[in-house]
Design a binder for these strands. Structure first.
Length: 535
DNA sequence: CGGGTTTGACCGGCGC
DNA sequence: GCGCCGGTCAAACCCG
């Protein structure tokens, strides 16, 4: 026992008062047996120091036990003797019989500490108080958890609504295009249909071929970013990257395309080469992206003690999508997942977000502009176009053997940055009512991508974003500033950030980890990463 | 027994 | 041509 009660005495001989418990006239429980005289007691350590700092406003830390009547054996009341909190205390040895300890304040007043049942009871009381506080805190956190779950659910439902809306818009645009009788569109549609027949339903590659007129991309670039390629145009330069495998047509190769569209051919060839890397902090061996993967190899990469694992998608026979998973050599908590290729099959909702994310990023990489003269694309292009809130999240490199987009989710965006973003930079509005709309920066990326590149869409990410905005102007910008503080707090934990990003990525696909993201949608090695919400 | 993982072999690109 | 390296294959192995 290293704590006790401090009584304050003044102009008296305290040693004469408290030689024993009997002398005190009570059993150290001031609430039960004290007669009169003391109105305040507060706990101190046995070394005579107040538990609270004597230099801080510690009045609130004093334990006021109410009116206490006390008479010593000399019939002298001890009352109103509270020591000033700024007075330092010096201690004397506690009485071996009573546990009382006389301490002397600098102002000359004496104080007495009690080491017995009183302190125990007070400690119990304090423990109870702490427990109560913890319970309150726990309840608050549970409520917060429920609220966040509700937000995620809302975002999920909003995404579903938007997805349906987008499909409707696509159909509407297709109809209007057909009615316009645009020759080019008809040709594209016809060729698209031919490709579908030719590829046995593998239509996904066509998505990236129907990128639409370069004018649309260029127009969007005018509204999304002032940074353009040195040539001043974002006109497609697809075909600069010629692949020696462009004419291959193996089971994992891109089907050979109509020679009448050399641009498409090179685009498809490059699409296979284009890669999207996602960096997250995760202890799990692999992030959960909703797809089924089969590991087909593992290699030790040069310069990294961590092995690189190779996976291929097994959700459909012949799906060309592959991914590499490797931990960062510098920070092994960072997991880098590199996706390559495009799924040739329908995706489950849980996999839609990540797949569309990577597809959109790759599509932007290829359609927005290919590497500029210096071989390195402006790293802010994608970031400012699709990730207006987190320009530091995306880097694009075309100097590598394959053009690669890296989405770095290991850093939480600066919430202040969110508030500074002018409304005109919000690329993707939300056609659902805003009252319950919530979006966090970490969820913005999957949501934007998820909407921009729905798997069966024939729009590029740029087009879909633009089209939607034309129909439904942005109107929910205040939500971002409102939640930025909470977002900052949430994303302060890097692990949670990564988990949140992964989870939202999954959730944005239409399922929640607790109801829809079954192990069947993941490899056996990735199941661990989906349970963070329960933590 | 089927599906997934492991792991050494193999292949092709690339630089010297 | 040779070696390095990234990527893939496939037999062996593991596991439920």
């Amino acid at each position: 026992m290293d704590k006790g009660w401090c009584l304050t005495l003044k102009n008296s001989d305290p040693t004469g008062f408290f030689t024993s418990k009997a002398d005190l006239g009570f059993n150290m429980n001031p609430r039960l047996n004290v007669k009169e005289g003391i109105d305040k007691m507060f706990p101190v350590n046995l070394n005579g120091r107040e538990e609270h700092s004597t230099s801080s406003p510690a009045d609130e830390k004093r334990v006021v036990l109410g009116e206490v009547d006390f008479f010593s054996d000399k019939n002298r009341p001890i009352k109103d003797m509270a020591v000033k909190k700024e007075d330092a205390l010096t201690a004397k040895e506690p009485d071996v019989n009573t546990g009382l300890q006389l301490v002397t304040a600098n102002n000359g007043s004496d104080q007495l500490t009690v080491d017995d049942g009183v302190s125990s009871e007070v400690e119990d009381k304090r423990a109870i108080n702490e427990l109560t506080q913890l319970k309150v805190e726990l309840e608050r956190m549970n409520a917060e958890n429920q609220r966040l779950r509700g937000m995620l659910s809302q975002v999920s439902s909003n995404y579903s609504a938007l997805q349906m809306h987008l499909v409707a818009l696509m159909q509407q645009q297709q109809n209007s295009t057909a009615h316009d009788g645009t020759q080019e569109r008809e040709i594209l549609d016809r060729k698209s249909q031919e490709k579908k027949e030719e590829n046995g339903g593998a239509t996904v590659q066509r998505q990236f071929l129907d990128l639409g007129p370069a004018r649309e991309i260029d127009d969007l670039s005018n509204t999304s970013t002032e940074e353009r390629t040195p040539s001043g145009s974002l006109t497609k330069k697809i075909g600069r990257v010629e692949s020696p495998e462009s004419d291959s047509c193996g089971p994992n190769k891109i089907p050979k395309l109509n020679p009448s569209k050399p641009v498409d051919q090179s685009t498809v060839a490059t699409m296979k080469k284009a890669r999207v890397s996602v960096r997250v902090r995760s202890e799990a061996p692999m992030i959960s992206d909703g797809c089924q993967w089969r590991k087909y190899g593992q290699k030790m990469a040069k310069g990294n003690p961590c092995p690189r694992a190779y996976y291929r998608c097994t959700m459909a026979v012949g799906c060309p999508v592959r991914k590499q998973v490797q931990r960062c050599a510098e920070d092994k908590t960072i997991l880098t997942t590199t996706y390559e290729g495009t799924h040739n099959h329908p995706l489950p909702p849980a996999a839609m977000a990540m797949a569309s994310t990577t597809s959109a990023a790759a599509s932007m990489l290829l359609s927005g502009s290919m590497p500029s003269a210096d071989g390195l694309m402006n790293p802010n292009f994608l970031a400012r176009t699709i990730l207006p809130y987190s320009s530091n999240m995306a880097t694009i490199s075309a100097s590598a053997p394959f053009p690669t987009v890296t989405l770095d989710l290991t850093h939480s965006p600066n919430p202040l940055q969110l508030q500074r973003v002018p409304p005109t930079q919000y690329q993707v509005p939300f056609p659902v009512p805003p009252q319950n709309f919530v979006s966090a920066p970490t969820s913005q990326m999957p949501q934007v991508f998820g909407q921009a590149m729905v798997n069966q869409s024939k729009f590029s990410g740029l087009q879909s974003s633009q089209n939607i905005e034309q129909i439904q102007p942005p109107q929910h910008h205040h939500s971002f500033a409102d939640i930025s503080a909470a977002t900052a707090a949430i994303t302060a934990d890097p692990n949670f950030t990564a988990a949140l990003a992964a989870a939202i990525t999954s959730i944005m696909g239409g399922s929640r980890p607790d109801i829809g993201d079954t192990p069947n949608n993941n490899t056996s090695t990735s199941n661990k990463s989906s349970s963070f919400l329960e933590n």
